[in-house]
Design a protein around this nucleic acid. Structure first.
Length: 364
DNA sequence: GAGACGTGGAG
DNA sequence: TCTCCAAGTCT
């Protein structure tokens, strides 16, 4: 079937724009680099795509540098210690990504001879790789003609075609439109170009329509407020959960830590002992959940907002002797606290109890 | 389809 | 202060 002339023209406009205005990113082979003969490394493409899931470019940069420096190949990552991977991911969020990252590296290294599958279908069979990431790796790393649809592309497409169907119901329709637009030549650059366009021009707020290569074809521009697209269902209110966190310090300044269960919220990460964060507002904020008997002293509240609820932790501190602590857990020396797999909410709790906890760690 | 799953930055 | 949200995936 012959593709309509108009869609081909759109791809040409986009690629011309990308050649001129592409972002230079550490994981990217930009057009000038490709002209010099550089080719994408599937490992780096995959790693960056996973890190970028629901995460800003700015936040990803330092983590990408750390991971590629520490584990230059997928086999290096596959052989790494799980704990080291979790520690290196700490702070980036969505920790299931790190657990799946390791599993995926193992599958590629030990199940595929260290070579990534080069098809969407093969990629999607791997842990942590869904529709978007499979299509993105296939297009960017393997030059496959796949329809890459992420949040940026959804925004561009929804405005370009004035799509009234709200997300996520509109996804199949959008994917079909992207597939029809994607050129046989340079599908990877087309995908990256669409994402760059969404990130820098066709932005959620105050889009720079005057600079957009599609402004002559855009169905929304001039008819309606582009910011109203894509249409989305109204979001729900976040419930509040309450809990307690216990920061115990021994004679040497070491802090008592535990490891969370592998699945669920902050799965596999390190924590200070605490109460259950009940689904209701009346969780245990007292010392009933303290890990051991000590002179627990309330020292304020930490508020942390997760994706689907707000957590208010009453923080307690105590000076305890090592013998007092029983049960699972360990005393982490102050100077190595910063290298632990502590999620941000746990760092906040520790700082609330011991304001200079991490400064002490860095100086030591 | 809907809910779980983090965090920090921008307006 | 507060709302939105950034290259989604899994169940």
């Amino acid at each position: 079937m012959t593709k309509p002339h108009r869609t081909t023209a759109l791809a040409d406009l986009l690629l011309a724009w990308y050649d001129r205005h592409h972002r230079d990113l550490p994981w990217r082979v930009s057009p000038p680099m490709a002209a010099r003969g550089e080719t994408p490394d599937p490992y780096r493409v995959w790693l960056s795509e996973v890190m970028l899931q629901q995460t800003t470019v700015q936040a990803v940069k330092s983590y990408f540098a750390l991971f590629t420096s520490r584990w230059p190949t997928v086999t290096d990552l596959a052989r790494a210690d799980n704990e080291d991977v979790m520690k290196s991911w700490a702070g980036l969020g969505y920790y299931a990504r790190a657990r799946n990252l390791k599993k995926c590296a193992e599958a590629v290294a030990f199940g595929h001879g260290g070579v990534f599958p080069d098809t969407e279908e093969g990629l999607k069979a791997l842990p942590g790789i869904g529709d978007y990431t499979a299509a993105a790796i296939a297009a960017i790393a393997f030059n496959r003609h796949s329809a890459v649809l992420d949040g940026n592309v959804e925004r561009v497409i929804s405005r370009l075609h004035a799509i009234e169907t709200p997300l996520p119901a509109a996804k199949p329709e959008m994917r079909a439109l992207v597939a029809a637009m994607t050129p046989q030549d340079r599908p990877g650059d087309f995908a990256q170009g669409m994402m760059d366009l969404g990130a820098t021009i066709c932005t959620p707020r105050r889009p720079a329509c005057a600079l957009c290569p599609f402004n002559a074809q855009c169905r929304v521009l001039g008819q309606d407020d582009p910011e109203l697209y894509p249409r989305k269902a109204a979001k729900k209110e976040k419930p509040v959960r309450l809990g307690a966190a216990f920061v115990a310090e021994d004679e040497t300044g070491a802090i008592f830590l535990r490891k969370r269960v592998e699945s669920g919220l902050l799965g596999g990460m390190t924590e200070v002992p605490g109460s259950q964060w009940t689904a209701r507002i009346d969780g245990d904020t007292g010392t009933g959940a303290a890990p051991f008997a000590a002179a627990w002293q309330a020292c304020g509240t930490v508020v942390h907002v997760f994706t689907h609820f707000e957590l208010r932790l009453t923080v307690y501190r105590s000076k305890a002797s090592r013998d007092a602590a029983a049960g699972e857990g360990w005393w982490q020396p102050r100077e190595t606290l910063d290298g632990e797999a502590l999620p941000t909410v746990m760092k906040k709790a520790i700082k609330q109890a011991i304001p200079d906890a991490f400064e002490t760690a860095r100086k030591a």
